[in-house]
Simulated scan of single mutants.
Amino acid sequence: MASVLAQSSRLAAQTLKAANQGVRLIDHFSREVVDDIFACALKKQTGVSLKYMLDFGSKPIERQLILSAQFLHNELPVRLSHRVAELENLPYGLSAKPHVLKVRDWYVESFRELRSFPKVKDASDELHFTRLLQHIYRRHTNVVPVMAMGVAELKRELSRSIGVEDLPDIHQFLDGFYMSRIGIRMLIGQHIALHEPPQRENHIGLIDTKCSPAGVCQDAIDDARSICLREKGGAPEVTVYGDPSFTFPYVPSHLHHMVFELVKNSLRAVHDRFEDSDNEPPPIRLVVAEGEEDITIKVSDEGGGIPRSGLPKMWTYLYTTAKSPLDDMDRSQATEGSDGPSVLAGYGYGLPISRLYARYFGGDLSIISMEGYGTDAYLHLNRLGNVQEPLP
């Protein structure tokens, strides 16, 4: 314990030293911008629900698009400023890491552009504002991997002196930061999508009003098995149980992301356990259950499970069983987006971020493991769509 406290003191000193080396906001941006950021960070964020997005976007007439733009014009700077204020004051010197500074500056630039944009009054203003949103959306595409690289750098520095379980404040920050990012991209993506002709029938922006859980799960399974085949040379079978005709309103890309991650983990575990066996690997079972309040998706495998002592590590951002991508790539590069079925193996982000996606619309994700046998993952999705965003 004494060594941990000593290390924390040393890192606090590093943070102070970093502050004196020109990495603070005030060293790179005007006093006016910095004051505006911290003033906005004192304002309360306004959460919305899936049902609200559905009702609002059901008839995207000109007046509603203007109202949506006006809401985002006021709301997005508040959300961005909250994150900038946090990024400026992280413990253990994390704020001074180059990748974290890059992310912070992206948020500041987007904040400045939104604050300098005049009030949206008519359709012409709304169209120009939407173009700005498209620009901001693209700018923030790589936030997850770039932030992951900054955290990985901190992990390397601390690995010999502090265990990952000794950094609850870092985990709490990352949970809030990534949850906020999901919300920001959902709001921006939804507004942009309302401008576009529906790619598929029954879509209101990014939301499929008749999303088939079984159908999305099958797509995610196909993608996960394809990757497993490419990387491992084989892929266990996955059997889906559930009514393919059942539908409910949801964001298919979110569901795909979560199921893809769960199935990918199960495929890897089962393949590795039975790789040298003469027996055929048992199939992974995916069950879709319809409840009155929740849709529950269970992914069951016989991949050997993990010890109970290892379960807490599954939800941290500083633990992974895969090889770190930092071992194979230049640290200044990060090209992995995180809005589709992203593969972040090696960062240790798959499960914790999937749980955030589930919780964003009022669901949850839990893992139950039987060491020596296998693992069951339970993905709960709120069917009613009436839960507001859990804003950090």
Results as ranks from 00 to 15, higher is better:
Lys232Met: 13
Gly233Val: 11
Gly233Arg: 10
Gly234Arg: 14
Ala235Glu: 08
Ala235Lys: 07
Pro236Thr: 04
Glu237Arg: 11
Glu237Leu: 10
Glu237Ile: 03
Val238Thr: 06
Val238Met: 04
Thr239Lys: 12
Thr239Tyr: 03
Thr239Pro: 01
Val240Arg: 00
Gly242Val: 01
Asp243Glu: 06
Phe246Asn: 00
Phe248Ser: 05
Phe248Leu: 13
Phe248Ala: 10
Pro249Gln: 00
Pro249Ile: 06
Ser253Trp: 06
Ser253Phe: 02
His254Thr: 09
Leu255Lys: 00
Leu255Tyr: 05
Leu255Ser: 01
His256Thr: 08
His256Glu: 10
His256Ser: 12
His257Gln: 13
His257Gly: 06
His257Tyr: 13
Met258Thr: 08
Met258Tyr: 01
Val259Pro: 00
Phe260His: 15
Glu261Gly: 12
Glu261Met: 14
Leu262Lys: 05
Leu262Arg: 02
Lys264Ile: 04
Lys264Tyr: 12
Ser266Glu: 01
Ser266Val: 09
Leu267Asn: 03
Leu267Val: 08
Ala269His: 12
His271Glu: 07
His271Arg: 08
His271Cys: 08
Asp272Arg: 14
Arg273Phe: 01
Arg273Glu: 01
Glu275Asp: 02
Glu275Trp: 04
Glu275Ala: 11
Glu275Asn: 00
Ser277Asn: 07
Ser277His: 02
Ser277Tyr: 02
Asp278Gln: 07
Asn279Lys: 10
Asn279Tyr: 06
Glu280Val: 12
Pro282Trp: 00
Ile284Thr: 03
Ile284Ala: 10
Arg285Met: 09
Leu286Glu: 03
Leu286Pro: 00
Val287Arg: 12
Val287Thr: 14
Val288Tyr: 02
Val288Glu: 03
Ala289Glu: 15
Glu290Phe: 03
Gly291Ile: 01
Glu292Tyr: 00
Glu293Phe: 02
Asp294Glu: 03
Asp294Phe: 11
Ile295Gln: 00
Thr296Gly: 00
Ile297His: 02
Lys298Trp: 02
Glu302Met: 13
Glu302Leu: 11
Gly303Met: 02
Ile306Gln: 11
Pro307Val: 07
Arg308Val: 09
Arg308Ser: 13
Arg308Ala: 15
Ser309Val: 13
Lys313Arg: 14
Met314Glu: 09
Met314Gln: 12
Trp315Gly: 07
Thr316Gln: 02
Tyr317Trp: 06
Tyr319His: 06
Thr320Gly: 00
Thr321Met: 08
Thr321Trp: 05
Lys323Phe: 11
Lys323Met: 14
Ser324Phe: 00
Pro325Gly: 00
Pro325Trp: 01
Leu326Val: 11
Leu326Pro: 09
Asp328Thr: 11
Asp328Val: 09
Asp330Glu: 14
Arg331Ala: 12
Arg331Ser: 14
Ser332Gly: 04
Ser332His: 12
Ala334Arg: 01
Ala334Leu: 10
Thr335Tyr: 11
Glu336Ile: 15
Glu336Gln: 14
Glu336Phe: 12
Pro341Phe: 13
Pro341Asp: 13
Pro341Gln: 14
Val343Arg: 13
